[in-house]
């Protein structure tokens, strides 16, 4: 197959992924919508903290001897099957299938793109955007294997679609080879790990926002009811960040190694490096804030949110407008 054919199949796969993800988003929205009236009808509180034992089973923990250990192991997750109306459950299930299919299509698209240019498909803004969307979906779908994340689907798939839309319009770049400073295995290592951690940070950011929203606007308002308890949400936020943070640390180190290869010095205070560093420091501050006496979990979560805002700025602003040695956005 010629390079052009591969590139056009890659785009086809991308469009299919976007279509499938749109269906998935609608399914997730249907799930949440279907959940609400049912709950209101019964006038139940769904704050999961009140039903610890049921959850433990739902979270796949298996029966616990004596059941008394459950209090410590209270896990989030949706309520047991019986409580979710059948239609909502169906919508959620279909949405999840579409989410998985969309993820696979995104992967295929990235792989075909890589084939068409005979290099790792992470060389310009468009490719970063697709990869960030892919890894965010991978994190979501992968995590979904371990626990029921139907409540989270809408909040992940919708921003992913927006990102893909932007990549396809504003950042689109024709498939081509790389400039010399980007031809290095360290590109593959550094940028891939960076994008994986961005995917994790993205999901962490979304969960943090849901936590803050639930905390701010009350646990039984509208859609917020369908979410796990505040405590679980906060804990999930932390759980995602402690996986993402070491990966980001690695990104920083790998970037420095590559910078020495390509530019002669491992640290040049180039705008991109500055922002990688700022992001690292902000997330370190988040981990600190969480254990600092006198800091509430809510305030700490805001630091995490600020961290992701920095990631967005780094990607959408620094890449495009700031002059530096990283000028390879292809724009």
């Amino acid at each position: 197959m010629t390079h052009e054919t591969l590139a056009s199949y890659s785009n086809l796969s991308l469009y299919s992924a976007m279509a499938v993800l749109t269906l998935s988003m609608l399914g997730y929205a249907g799930y949440l919508a279907g959940l609400l009236p049912a709950r209101e009808r019964r006038g139940e509180s769904v704050d999961t903290a009140e039903a610890p034992e049921r959850e433990l089973v739902a979270a796949g923990g298996g029966p616990v001897g004596g059941g008394s250990a459950a209090a410590a192991a209270a896990a989030p997750g949706s309520d047991s099957e019986g409580e979710v109306p059948l239609r909502a459950r169906k919508a959620g299930g279909v949405a999840h299938m579409f989410a998985i299919l969309g993820t696979v299509l995104l992967f295929v698209s990235a792989a075909l793109r890589g084939g068409s240019v005979e290099r790792w498909p992470l060389g310009n803004m468009f490719e970063f955007g697709v990869a960030a969307a892919l890894f965010t979906m991978v994190v979501f779908v992968g995590w979904g294997v371990r626990r029921d994340l139907t409540w989270l689907g809408l909040f992940v798939v919708a921003p992913v679609l927006i990102l893909l839309g932007l990549a396809n319009t504003v950042w689109y770049t024709e498939a081509a080879e790389l400039m010399p400073s980007l031809k290095s295995v360290w590109l593959i290592i550094h940028v891939t790990v960076a994008t994986i951690s961005v995917g994790l940070f993205a999901v962490g950011f979304i969960v943090a926002l849901l936590y803050l929203a639930k905390d701010r606007f009350g646990a039984d308002r509208g859609i917020l009811r369908a979410l796990p308890s505040e405590k679980s949400l906060e804990r999930l936020t932390y759980g995602l960040h402690i996986v993402a943070f070491p990966l980001w640390t690695f990104t920083l180190i790998a970037g420095a190694i590559w910078a020495r290869q390509a530019w002669g010095s491992y640290w040049n205070w180039d705008p991109k490096e500055v922002w990688t560093f700022i992001i690292w420091v902000v997330y370190a501050a988040y981990l600190h804030a969480r254990v600092t006496r006198g800091w509430r979990r809510q305030s700490a979560s805001w630091v995490a949110v600020a961290g992701f805002v920095c990631i967005i700025v780094n990607y959408a602003v620094v890449n495009v407008y700031f002059v530096g040695q990283h000028s390879y956005s292809g724009l």
Binding site: W269, F277, V281, V282, A285, A289, W295, F322
Partner: peptide, 15 residues
């Protein structure tokens, strides 16, 4: 914690 946040802010103008 305060110094960490300050460091992040102080690094900004350089970019």
């Amino acid at each position: 914690l305060f110094l960490l946040l300050l460091l992040a802010v102080a690094a900004l103008p350089g970019s």
